[in-house]
Design a protein around this nucleic acid. Structure first.
Lengths: 341, 341
DNA sequence: GTTAGCACTCCATTTCGATGAGTGCTAACG
DNA sequence: CGTTAGCACTCATCGAAATGGAGTGCTAAC
């Protein structure tokens, strides 16, 4: 348990370090105004905080910097949520006022705004269709042997893919089945589509359509095919403004990682809802062991749909970012419900 | 006009410099084997080449590096197209063998492969719908006041957007019009849609549908709305491996630029078809004045559809990249025709 | 418990000279 | 006359040594 004074000092050090990116000395803390003790006293406390593992010393004659544990304590107990500034709020309002055609545009654009406002990197996971329901399913023939399958969800989300139609299958038969599927599957959540298909539809169809099995399998694959949510990335180059990544090799390993969509999705795997902060080595990936990742989920009708996140150096403006993500995730939810008023 | 010997020397210098990224001295050229003159002779020629503006000297006691003009001469007269290596060819074959659902996936994936094979940054402009024709148009209602419009092109390309339906317009009326549009517009190239809409359809409809004007305007907007081609970017972090960008500020200005889709599209504006090489300051954007951009267009049925490009330092392996882009752009065309055999 | 004072540590920056790669010029060579 | 060997000169780079200064830990006094 820390004393009040220790907490003040820890807070002051982290604040300073977040601003300056340089080890903080006892003298500068003493001069800040909010901690009115002499440098010597502060030095003593700092030594204690270091013993507790909350601070570190790059070398004997330097000031202190926060350790991972120190940041963790700061985030859990000390950080003050600044709220969203006037300017940012205005920016967000104009952002949400913009008319956008695609669901995905909203999310993608949100990523851009987020990275611009924070000067960090933003990573946004697009909505998953998993929990939504099927609204419409359709095949549009393109040539003799190929067609475009279009799948619309109740959220207005559209998926489409090109499929190849095997030889010996008549378009008519396909259409019969598609019509049937539409009747039976509309309103069914995607995660149930597969079972409904097998239990209710398969037998009924088999009577009056040739090649039924084959067609059904094809369509089933088409509808249920794993559709990984899209990942939107913005402001990756902001990483380069951080002094901790002025070393090109470090920067490269992070930016390289950011290009691999697969890895990014891994980062977002544990998804308990609400705001989550992962500091330094708390992150699974080694490439971002010097970074912190703050994530928030956005939801629609109580269902968590996707995640928005900010990646920055461990020396991140936690207060600002947490407030912002909180604000934005709620606003996105709001916007979605308005969208389908 | 350069003498044969000068061309050999210029070629040798550029080759060496592309490999090493360091100023090339007369001695190392002399030792390469393909130029059998003494260092002193080579020095004389180098001085001449410098006077011609083809070479530069970072400082008096350093070797020479190619100037923009030097690279230009190299690309126009000297470069040997290596062809595509076995390994790369194999990689491309497996790439094209993969089954992909979306048209866009092919293009996006091509960008990835391209950047991996070259270790440069690849930029790919997705297919434009401009020159394709309309195959199918449809509205799917999502809620009382919103619907998803789906537009399918003859290439299998799908566009969709969410539209808001104004109060006082019945879904029925909408559907009538949509059906009509499908009849009349199928097979019409997108760039003609607007005029056909006005000349052939407007008057005919106005007779038997209420609110005709309003609906038509809405749909027209929906169909013809500027759809900027998507930009796919891959391997941006490869820039950081280049010694010329070890300075973080330079790297930042380039990577920052790469994040702005708008700017990237600018880069691709002049689009004469075939392979195009822009070296250093020949590029419009200042941010890439130290880079070269090589682009190729890919086409379908004679129509140029989009562009694939490689961005790297001016010290780029021109021969390799040009061969590769040439190969790939043709393969994409091939693939597209096979897709709709 | 707090603070002033002081010796000490160690990084960062500068300075300086040595090193060496590379040049331009001149003179000799075939 | 083209080519080449030789040589003095330039200048970036590297390492060692010197300097400065920020910050600490400890002790003793308040």
């Amino acid at each position: 348990m820390l004393s009040e004074r220790q907490r003040m000092i820890l807070n002051a050090i982290i604040d300073d370090y977040i601003r300056s990116a340089e080890p903080v000395g006892s003298r500068s803390i003493s001069k800040r105004g909010d901690v009115t003790f002499s440098p010597a006293t502060i030095r003593n406390e700092m030594a204690d905080l270091e013993e507790l593992g909350l601070l570190e010393q790059p070398h004997t004659s330097a000031g202190r910097i926060p350790s991972i544990k120190g940041y963790r304590y700061y985030v859990d107990h000390l950080v003050t949520l600044d709220g969203v500034g006037d300017q940012d709020a205005r920016k967000l309002r104009t952002f949400f006022a913009e008319k956008m055609n695609h669901w995905e545009d909203v999310i993608g654009h949100a990523a851009t705004v987020l990275s611009q406002m924070t000067n960090y990197t933003s990573i946004v996971l697009g909505p998953e269709m998993f929990s939504t329901t099927l609204k419409h399913f359709q095949l549009i023939p393109i040539s003799d042997s190929s067609a475009v399958a279009i799948i619309v969800a109740n959220t207005g989300h559209v998926e489409h893919r090109t499929i190849t139609i095997p030889d010996g299958i008549a378009m008519e038969d396909m259409n019969k089945i598609v019509n049937m599927l539409n009747e039976k599957l509309t309103g069914v959540p995607f995660y149930k589509v597969k079972s409904v298909l097998h239990s209710e539809i398969a037998k009924e169809l088999s009577r009056y359509v040739e090649h039924c099995e084959e067609i059904l399998t094809l369509l089933e694959q088409t509808i249920t095919e794993e559709q990984e949510p899209k990942v939107y990335l913005s402001g990756a180059s902001n990483m380069l403004t951080q002094p901790e990544f002025k070393d090109v090799d470090k920067a490269k390993s992070i930016l390289g990682m950011l290009e691999e969509t697969q890895l990014l999705m891994q980062l977002f795997q544990s998804n308990p809802g609400g705001i989550q902060v992962k500091i330094g080595t708390e992150n699974a990936l080694e490439a971002i062991n010097q970074c912190s990742l703050i994530t928030a989920t956005y939801s629609y009708e109580g269902q968590s749909l996707g995640t928005i996140g900010i990646l920055g150096p461990t020396r991140m403006e936690y207060g600002k970012v947490i407030s912002l993500l909180n604000y934005l995730s709620k606003d996105i939810a709001l916007m979605m419900s308005r969208w389908y008023k």
